[in-house]
């Protein structure tokens, strides 16, 4: 079976400092994988390299076995990477459903230019139906017509997830989904995500600082520290390892 995401030796330097050195990780289809590490470990940089926001100096990013290292962000998105943002990025001045509709339309591909320009204005019935199915799954059905400005942060994150799901991703990258949410909201979000993921079977790579969420949500984890992978394996074992504790807590930080 080909891995959904396969990065090989990704290396990135900022002003002489190695932000990532030789990071290689695998995400299998349908898997939920965590990527954790202390502040400044390079998690966000790695994310950006996978998405194409940053170009790695060395190393490759393979998506379903295809090398996408040279492709721009939107081409990678069309090949099956969906994502959410740590600071939510919504479109403003539109409704919840509009967010999903535009993603659905992009997925269906560009038409003739003049048709895209003038025709195809109103969303078709099946476009709306496709969006509403996802909204239903995420528990957002009642908010479909709501202007985006009226949403809470937690709901906003779900809209981001919904928007990403409309592209039918093979891999969903979640960027610190718990940031800005309190404990209960985080748990709700995790439950919804898990349900949708199990129903649709895409893989998830979760970058997260909340260790509890990672422990509850993922089966396997990678740990980054100083731009290097220092541990990988089943999440429970990874979290129990003294190396990881030291990365988080400093030398001698963990008991035992």
């Amino acid at each position: 079976m080909t891995a959904v995401l396969d990065t090989r030796g990704v290396t990135k330097t900022f002003a002489g400092v190695q932000a990532l050195s030789d990071v290689s990780l695998l995400v299998e289809p349908g898997e939920r994988v965590g990527l954790i590490g202390p502040n400044g470990a390079g998690k966000t940089t790695f994310f950006n390299c996978v998405l194409g926001v940053l170009r790695a100096e060395r190393g490759q990013v393979l998506l379903d076995g295809e090398d996408v290292s040279a492709l721009p962000v939107h081409e990678r998105a069309r090949r099956g990477i969906g994502r959410t943002f740590q600071r939510i990025e919504l479109f403003g001045e539109s409704t919840v459903r509009d967010h999903l509709l535009i993603a659905e339309r992009v997925r269906r591909g560009d038409g003739r230019l003049w048709r895209d320009l003038l025709g195809r204005g109103r969303p078709s019935a099946d476009e709306v139906a496709a969006c509403d199915r996802v909204l239903e799954q995420l528990g957002l059905a009642e908010l479909a017509e709501e202007p985006i400005e009226h949403l809470s942060l937690g709901q906003g994150r779900l809209v981001e997830v919904g928007r990403a799901l409309m592209t039918r991703p093979r891999l969903l990258l979640l960027d610190e989904p718990s940031s800005g949410l309190d404990r209960r909201e985080t748990a709700d979000l995790a439950a919804t995500l898990r349900a949708v993921q199990q129903a649709q079977g895409f893989a998830i790579l979760l970058v997260e600082h909340d260790v509890e969420l990672v422990a509850n949500f993922t089966s396997r984890s990678y740990v980054l520290d100083f731009g290097t992978l220092i541990a990988e394996g089943p999440t429970d074992e990874v979290l129990a390892s003294s190396l990881v504790r030291e990365a988080y807590l400093g030398p001698g930080g963990g008991p035992g």
């Binding site: 909340d210 807590l249 400093g250």
Partner: peptide
Amino acid sequence: VEQHVSHALGLCDRVVMLEHGA
């Protein structure tokens, strides 16, 4: 403010732990 606790613990008189902004 520290993420690496060991040093901080050696120096301080009191510890406050934050979780989810509380």
